[in-house]
């Protein structure tokens, strides 16, 4: 992540109140849940699929979802830690 982007995030965090942080976590979790569902459905499709190129395309979609979920989880973790620091 670029330094400027990081600074922007920090600034956003400092400006926002505790409730906003909680709302953010909630909305990211909602998206993560949907991503998880999509991941399951794609995995099922992948197991059934015979065609090599379709399999490759499904695998790519799964890889992207995995990366997005990982990013989301990291973000939630980050927000939680910030929330903890705020309450201390």
């Amino acid at each position: 992540m670029k330094a400027s982007k990081l600074m922007e995030r920090v600034k956003q965090y400092l400006d926002s109140d505790k409730q906003t942080q909680i709302d953010k976590i909630k909305s990211i979790r909602k998206v993560l849940k949907e991503l998880k569902q999509k991941e399951r459905s794609l995995t099922e499709k992948l197991e059934m699929e015979q065609d090599a190129s379709t399999k490759a395309s499904l695998q790519l979609k799964l890889d992207v979802i995995y990366a997005q979920r990982k990013k989301g989880v990291d973000r939630v973790q980050e927000l939680k830690e910030q929330l903890k620091e705020q309450s201390n």
């Binding site: 992540m1 909305s27 990211i28 909602k30 991503l35 979920r69 989301g72 973000r75």
Partner: peptide
């Protein structure tokens, strides 16, 4: 609810 989605988009 675009903000949450945007934070998950890959750069």
């Amino acid at each position: 609810d675009q903000e949450a989605v945007d934070s998950l988009h890959l750069d």
